[in-house]
Each structure stands twice: as C-alpha cells, then as structure tokens.
C-alpha cells in the first residue's frame, strides 16, 4: 500500500514532499538551537557566536527549501494551487485548513526574516516581538506536515516527526532547567506548551491522519473563518 501511495504523481510532487520534509527538519534544528542558545548557559567547546551563525544559516536554508516546497507544490498539476496560496492562508482548493497552516507558518517566517534583516533599525524590542512568532510557526508547520502530508503514514515519516518533537521539547526543558529562579510568568506557559504539543499531536494523529478515510476528511475541513472552498 505504501508503495502505491508513494509512486503516484509527478516529479514535482515528489520534490515538493521531499523539500517540505527537509524544511521541517531544518526549521526544527533552527528552533532547537534558538531555544537552547537563548539562555545564559552555553557549552565551552563551541563559541556562542558560532551557535548564532549556525542558527542564522540554518534558518536561511530552511527558507530556501520552503521556497522550493512552495514553488513545486504550486507548479504541480495534480493539486491546482494558485500563487496566492503561498501567502494567503486558508484559501486553497486542496485541504484548505491543513495547507493554510503551512501558509501561516511561512508568513510568520517571512516576517521573522524581514525583521531580522532590519533588526538594527527596528530595535531589540520590536525585533524580539516578531521573533517570538517563530515559536508559533514551528507547531503550525508540524501540523501542516502531518495534516497535509502524503507521507504521514510512512513509518519513517512518523519517526521523523517524533524526532523533531523530541528535539524541541528537550531544548525547552534544557533551557528551563539551566535557567535560574524567577520569571515564572514566562516559563510556565513555555513548559506547558512543550508538554501540550506532543499530546495534541499524538491525539490528532491517532484520530486523524492514521485513520482510514483521512484524505476525504482533510479535503472537507475548512477553516471556520477562512471560508475556503
């Protein structure tokens, strides 16, 4: 069954799936580094500036693969997506809600890109405020991948998702463990979110994509506000 699932479609469709998966892995690495290096604790063997550079370069690579993911998905004749889908969330003809999550994540990452390029001019507070959205973009991208992904039911893909989830959750816990006392108002939500995302994702997988008939249900789910179809 898996073979038939994987071998249908055009080369563009393969490219889109592969680049999407890679982008998720790279985004996970970026977010993990960002979370882990944001605190005061740092490993001795590597310079802090190197972590910073790695974080930046990984994020640029993420965007490169995301561009490829979007372009190939739009060009692919199978799903008939317009270019607007790349920036306007929840308006797609194909799995509007799940694709829209990906668009929303992309929009947020673009905002982070622009503000980071202009951060010297914007000042640290405004830049940081937008940068925090990258934390929201990651779960959006994850749910987008799981909800839209053609390959969600492949065991390898499931392991990949589990790995991504594990890395980010571990980074959050590491940072919280290394941080000193105080700032409970900021840290409690972070800890809660780090616990909630795996639970929600697991429940979603069990009731959604891993059940038979998901393709029909995903196509029918529209975002309440977005209207879709």
């Amino acid at each position: 069954m898996t073979t038939t699932l994987a071998l249908t479609g055009s080369p563009l469709w393969y490219a889109s799936r592969a680049s999407g998966t890679l982008a998720l892995v790279l985004l996970t690495a970026t977010v993990t580094l960002g979370i882990a290096a944001g605190g005061r604790a740092a490993p001795r063997c590597i310079g802090r500036f190197e972590i910073g550079l790695l974080h930046r370069n990984l994020s640029l690579l993420t965007l490169a693969f995301l561009t490829m993911h979007v372009v190939t998905a739009v060009l692919d004749p199978f799903v008939h997506l317009g270019w607007a889908v790349a920036v306007v969330p929840f308006g797609a003809s194909y799995r509007p809600l799940w694709l829209g999550l990906g668009t929303a994540a992309l929009d947020q990452l673009l905002a982070v890109l622009v503000t980071s390029a202009l951060r010297q001019r914007l000042g640290v507070r405004r830049w940081k405020a937008v940068h925090w959205m990258a934390y929201a973009a990651w779960p959006l991208a994850l749910f987008h991948g799981v909800g839209t992904g053609t390959d969600t039911r492949l065991p390898l893909q499931l392991w990949l998702h589990a790995g991504c989830l594990g890395a980010v959750v571990a980074a959050v816990w590491w940072r919280l463990a290394k941080a000193g006392p105080g700032h409970i108002t900021g840290r409690l939500p972070a800890a809660t979110a780090a616990m909630a995302v795996p639970v929600v994702l697991g429940a979603f997988l069990a009731t959604g994509p891993l059940q038979p008939g998901w393709a029909q249900r995903a196509a029918a789910t529209t975002f309440v506000l977005g209207g879709g179809r």
């Binding site: 005061r40 802090r48 500036f49």
Partner: peptide, 12 residues
Amino acid sequence: ITCTGQGLCAEL
C-alpha cells in the same frame, strides 16, 4: 541597560 552579558562580542 540592554546588555545581558551574553559575551558574543568578546568572542568576535
């Protein structure tokens, strides 16, 4: 006031 002593500047 904004400096929190991250120390990247001294590395670079």
